[in-house]
Nucleic acid binder design. Sequence first.
DNA 1: CAGGCATGTAAGTCATCACTTACGGTTAGT
DNA 2: ACTAACCGTAAGTGATGACTTACATGCCTG
Lengths: 106, 106
Amino acid sequence: MTYGRALAALADDTRRQVFEQLARGPRSVSAIAKELPVTRPAVSQHLKVLKEAGLVLDQAEGTRRIYQIDPAGLGPLRAWLDQFWGVALDAFAAEVERTRDEEQGQ
Amino acid sequence: MTYGRALAALADDTRRQVFEQLARGPRSVSAIAKELPVTRPAVSQHLKVLKEAGLVLDQAEGTRRIYQIDPAGLGPLRAWLDQFWGVALDAFAAEVERTRDEEQGQ
DNA sequence: CAGGCATGTAAGTCATCACTTACGGTTAGT
DNA sequence: ACTAACCGTAAGTGATGACTTACATGCCTG
């Protein structure tokens, strides 16, 4: 049930940009903020949310704090999504079938 | 870039319950609302958001309106997620490598 | 130890949003 | 045609949340 927090975390646009930056490699808070149109404290708050969602890990390194993607974080979200993937395909197949029958009917 | 709307749509808990109901088969608005602790207009508004996110299709059927999952709706979201799946695995592998080296060092 | 740097947190503000009730429109049945 | 059922939308409200500035903390360097 942890995918709920992951979804909420990734729903915000700025937070998604933070996450995408970390996907390109570990970065410090200031480094992230430097490439975004928001202040550093805002980034800090976003990172807190991402961390609580299990999407991100942090690690102290001197005075700086290095954040990186939590490899296992996307697992539950992906699993939840895949749960509907089959359903969607079934629905698609049913739709194709229905459409075919209708065309047959004409 | 349509995965943004999909994420925002699925971030809400009630809206996710609506979506999960539709995953079990097409349903009318009232039928959905009957299984939720919110009023019918609320469900109607949620369906509007889901529809604008491309996650849901509607179809008039007499006085009722039948909603169903849009089979193609989850595609972009899944693709976006998979984009990070490889990255996460790489990060995990790098982490394992790094840990191994550290243990080697001791 | 003083100063600068990197960060987290508190407090306040403004917008967004989920929800409600009230209303209007459309369709089916009698 | 009247009535009932189903639905979407308007308007209003309360809460959540994203952002800012200001402040406090910890670490490294001279």
